[in-house]
């Protein structure tokens, strides 16, 4: 599906090369220092996340080495609570695990939670908003009351309870996040679709007898897609923050060490006062990651809302 910028008319797909397409998307970052910084940070994290651990390709008998110098779960690769040194650039934990390795491995969890949760939340939110606004009437009433109710549910406590019920796994964490996170996208997309519904191109599509599904997904959706992307960026940020907070509270996936969980471990090990090298790196990483997404979101926002452009 095309993600061209908003145009008030219906669009046709163009046969541009993928590279050309990406380049045209990146144009909006031109002259936007914050957006460029955000993009740079995010790309670094993605690369680190992909190459965090070694890959073994069996039939080629080949192993691509991972970025993490040690197995993050391996105990006593160094002494207990060692401060940073050449062998362990970010020191070790109370179990003698390598902090740098944990940090690098944790990137992956953040990426998985951020991208999956955001995608699902925005997917649900966009559909709810689209259907609600397009059909109006009782459909709109019901869907919007449900959205209102979800707005009444406190995010983190709900996620805690749900994860406690379903068990601490990364899938359940994502489900808990998605069940709440779709609400803002739904409201915003609904408002946007309401305004598009009035436009001539929808009327003409109806006049030639296009089906509801076709009008919604082929005609209206491409026009609200930029807004969807903006909310996807925000959703990534909130999802990552939520995962970190859940893990910090001890509800993280015990099999997939995340940045939030690292800080939880510092707390439970009672090492927060002394082991600064164990606390600060994951905290800074969470902050940097979320920040990069917000910076990119700001750039997208200017694209979606041109009135903000003169900044």
């Amino acid at each position: 599906m095309s993600t061209e910028r908003t145009s008030p008319t219906d669009r046709t797909e163009t046969d541009g090369g993928t590279l050309e397409f990406i380049r045209s998307k990146l144009e909006i970052f031109e002259g936007d220092r914050l957006g460029q910084i955000g993009l740079g940070i995010l790309c670094s994290f993605i690369l680190i996340g992909i190459f965090a651990r070694p890959y073994t390709i069996d039939f080629l008998n080949l192993t691509i080495p991972g970025l993490a110098p040690h197995d993050p779960a391996e105990r006593a690769v160094g002494g207990r609570l060692e401060s940073p040194s050449g062998a362990h650039p970010l020191g070790t934990t109370h179990m003698g695990r390598d902090v740098l390795s944990q940090l690098i491995a944790g990137t992956r969890v953040t990426l998985i939670v951020g991208s999956l949760a955001a995608f699902m939340a925005v997917f649900i939110g966009t559909n709810v908003g689209l259907i609600s606004a397009y059909f109006g009437g009782w459909v709109d009433d019901v869907l919007m009351r449900i959205t209102d109710i979800v707005y009444g549910v406190p995010f983190l406590p709900f996620a805690i309870v749900l994860v406690a019920i379903l068990g601490s796994s990364i899938v359940n964490i994502i489900v808990a996040i998605v069940l709440i996170l779709w609400r803002s996208t739904a409201r915003v997309i609904r408002a946007q679709v309401l305004s598009h519904k009035q436009r001539p191109y929808v009327e003409s599509a109806q006049a030639i007898g296009a089906s509801h599904t076709r009008i919604m997904y082929r005609h209206i959706l491409p026009n609200v897609l930029p807004l969807t992307f903006l909310y996807a960026a925000f959703a990534v940020a909130w999802a990552v923050i939520a995962e970190a907070s859940l893990s910090f509270l001890g509800f993280g996936d015990p099999n997939m060490l995340s940045w939030g969980e690292m800080i939880y471990n510092v707390y439970t090990a009672n090492a927060i006062r002394e082991a600064w090298w164990w606390v600060f790196p994951p905290g800074i990483c969470i902050m940097l990651f979320v920040m990069s997404v917000f910076f990119i979101g700001r750039t997208l926002e200017k694209e979606v809302n041109p009135e903000l452009q003169h900044q």
Partner: peptide, 21 residues
């Protein structure tokens, strides 16, 4: 704007830990 975005990017527990430290 930068300061606000940085603040917004920090989960509550992280802000708390920094202040504590």
């Amino acid at each position: 704007i930068i300061v606000t975005l940085v603040a917004r990017s920090s989960p509550e527990f992280w802000v708390g830990i920094v202040l504590l430290s």
